[in-house]
Each structure stands twice: as C-alpha cells, then as structure tokens.
Design a binder for these strands. Sequence first.
DNA 1: TTCCGACAGTGGGGTCGCAAT
DNA 2: ATTGCGACCCCACTATCGGAA
Length: 512
Amino acid sequence: MLLARLAQVSQEVAATSARSKKIALLAELFREAEPDDVPIAIPYLAGRLPQGRLGVGWKVLSRPVPPAAEPSLTVAAVDALLTELGKVSGTGSQAERARLVGELMGAATEPEQRFLLGLLSGEVRQGALDAVATEGLAQATQTPSADVRRAVMLAGSLQTVAEALLADGPEALDRFRLTVGRPVLPMLAHSATSVAEAVGKLGACAVEEKLDGIRVQVHRDGDTVHVYTRTLDDITDRLPELTAAARELRGDRFILDGEVISFDAAGRPRSFQETAGRVGSRVDVATAAEQVPVSPVFFDALSVDGHDLLDLPFAQRHTELARLVPEPMRVRRTLVSGPDDVGAAESFLAETLERGHEGVVVKSLDAPYSAGRRGASWLKVKPVHTLDLVVLAAEWGHGRRTGKLSNLHLGARREDGSYAMLGKTFKGMTDAMLTWQTERLQALATGTDGYVVTVRPELVVEIAYDGLQRSTRYPAGVTLRFARVVRYREDKRPEEADTVETLLAAHPEVKP
DNA sequence: TTCCGACAGTGGGGTCGCAAT
DNA sequence: ATTGCGACCCCACTATCGGAA
C-alpha cells in the first residue's frame, strides 16, 4: 500500500466531523489493506507509530525539506525507515537521526509530508484515535464492536488484535483472555465536585483515599513479578520494593491494581514531585530507593489464582483483594450505604486530607472492572482552590484554536506592585471566552514576538487549581498545579488580585 | 425530543536521562 | 559541567457525535 493512500484517507477522516463517517472511511481502508500492511496501517490511522516514540521531536521535524513530485513511498518502506531510526535512537547520533528524517521527508509528496509530520509529532488531528479506529476495525471485520473493544483492553494493544482479527476472523478474539504477565488497560475515574454529588450518583459505595503517586498494575506468577504503569510500560526494575512486596503475599498468581507512593519518616505522604522523581530514576535504582523508598497501596484485584475477576462486582473483587493483601498494603476506605449516609463520606474525606492525601475516590460496589474506560462508576473528589490573578501575556493557539489567543500567562501581585508569573493555562475556556479574550487582549497588547503577545496587566481572571508545587522555572519559586480558568473578573481591578504572599501563606507545606 | 456517555483536542508542569555544546 | 530535547509521569476542561431515555 502506498503512503499516499493512507495520507488521503487521513485527510478525508479529518474533513468530516461525523464519527460514523470517520469509522466508515477507516473500515474501508482496513478492508483493502494487505496482511503485511495491517500491523502498520492500523496504528498509523489510529494516530500512533508501531515503534512507539522514536527520539524525534519538534526540533528535527521543523527543518523544511523539499517535497517529492510523485508519490512513491510504500507503507512498508516508511516502516522500515522508522524502525532504522528507532535503532539509531538507542545508540546515539542526533545528526544521523536528522539525516534519516530528511531522507524520508525528501521522498514524500507534500500531503505525505503533512501526514508524516503529524504522525511523528503525535498530532494527527484527524478526529480519530484508537477508539474510533477500533470501531473501524469492528466494521471492517463485521465483528461486534464490544467484542473488539474488550479484546483490545485485554491485549493492551489495538494492532495485536487487528492482526489476529484480519488474519483469522472473529474466532481469533477468543485468544485474548486476561493473562497474568500481560498488562491490561487500567480502569479510570471521572470527577465529581463533592462527595455528596458522587454518593448521590452511585448509591451504596466505597469511599477510598486517593493517593498522589504513580498508578501500578502488579502481576505475579510464582517468583516472576512485573510492574506496569498506566500506559502499560514495564517499570519492574525501578521498583524492587514492589517485587519484594508481591512475593510476600500469600497467593502466587495474581494481578493487582494500586498506587505506588513514598512516605516520609513520620509516615506522611511525600509530594508527587518526590515520588515521581523516584519512580523515574532508572540508572542508580539502589541509591534512589535508599533515599526515597516507595510502598505499594492496592485497591483492586483483577485476577487471583487463575480466576478472572474483571466481571465480578467491586464488592466481590475487594473481598478477594482482602484475602490476599494484608490491611497495611491496602488503601484506607470506608463503606457508605447511600445518600442518607453522606456525612460518613464527608468526614472520611476530611480525615484523608488531614493525613496529607489528595482526596477520595468514590466507587460503586456493584460495578465490574471496565478496563481502559473512564467508567462513571469511579468518581474522584478533590478540593479545589481558587485565586484571582492577572493576565500578563497570551500565546496563539494551534489546531482548532488557530487564530485565537489561547494559553494565558498568569501573574500574582508582589508587594512592590510588580507581578510574578505563576504559570500558564489554556483550560476551562469556552469558544465564546476564546473569542472574547482574543479581542480584549489584543487591545491591551504591548508587544509580540510572533507567538507570545504581552499585554498591560489589567485583566483579572479567576483561576482554579489543585495545589502549589515547587518550581525552578518561575520567579516566585512555585507554580500552580492544574490551573484552569473559571471566569473573567471584570469587576476587579488588578490591584485587587491575589498576592504571592497570600498564596504562599495558604500553602505552608510548600517551600519555594 | 432531550439527555448524557464517550472521544478527541488543547495543551499545562516536573523529572529523568542522554547527546551536544 | 551545563544545556536542550524527548519521553513519560501526573492532569482539567470543552465541543461534538450519536445512542439511550
């Protein structure tokens, strides 16, 4: 198959907003693909590379290369070149990578170049990623989409399922069963604004501590233990404590879901930054483990002693978890009978925050484990802080925000009347707000470098955020975590905005 | 007809590790 | 030794489609 054909389909998919049409276009292409093209074409049209990341980013891709006049690249040739590129990434030379990228781009026509750039930078912007491609695959093979989705969750990979399905037909899906040693996509949570709202939606539920660490899926089969992240990367070697902990447990074949986090000497949770730094350390694990030891805290069991628990209600899965894992290694929780009992949930949240944790997750007791989906049966509740800050500058947006000032630079007042930038945000804006702020900020503009428009510090905006964290990038030594716009405060003068001092006073545990 | 679940898009900050400087 | 870059952790929110109610 020619790359030009893929680029054309991607273009057609991008051109329609109807999901049903996107799915039909993808299905048509999947049907016409040769068996050898399938493991390449499927991930390409799901906006991913089969090789994963290649060590090629914006820096290399931004060098323009004259396009070819006629399409000649095949999908297989592109894949071979990218595989070569992946090997070079392992061994070194940036110059060699740049040369290979140049070679590829030089052989591509203009539309092919556009498609490849999107693919390599992870921004295909065709309105179809894995989930839509999965629907397309189901349609192409005339297989119920729920069956395909489930197989993808269990395989942790769309292309594995696609190869099997297109080669052997629907019966091939039976091969994808929950297997110890093969990670599955983890179940995710939605947000709720209060425990009352969450309990109101779910009824009888468990309220569990939400720990601010790294999500882990731990597989043990005899003496063999593997630890996977949320994106199914194998991080076993970085976390020797988890292998040891898994081997201590009474069962010898299981899959558990939990969080890994570091506690200080006093038993308080360390900051996310500290835990994430430890989990990210790969070179001298022994030293890192000594300085920042981590502990697993489990909250779900997917498989125990060869039994697949995914379809059991949470209450039963937790019974299995409790049989296997002693209490100190399980997440703290309380059971709530329903909306009449919401007081118990609220006091549990208060206690949890007092213990230094992030918030709670409210979980329906009768929901199955919906791997890979952001099911509405888990609802997280975290406290939200707000501040009134001043817009110092704004950046031009990309994609659907092209031509709109999007990303705001946020400043807090200093006592001397100047402003300290605390971070940026592009979140929380409606299209109407984008239009409004583009006009308003341009009227306040004092200069631009073509990308960042600086403005007179006059516009006050109410910002919600999850917490403060240390920063080496910003002048106050701190930055906001997950800042988003709530609303503009045109009723407020910049002199009425919050100050760095009041912000620091509100978060005494964070030292700039 | 209206409501709501699922999806994609738009990017934020930090940290680590590696290659280039 | 320092710097720049890419990968991968954490993540919120809005717009839109299309099936469910």
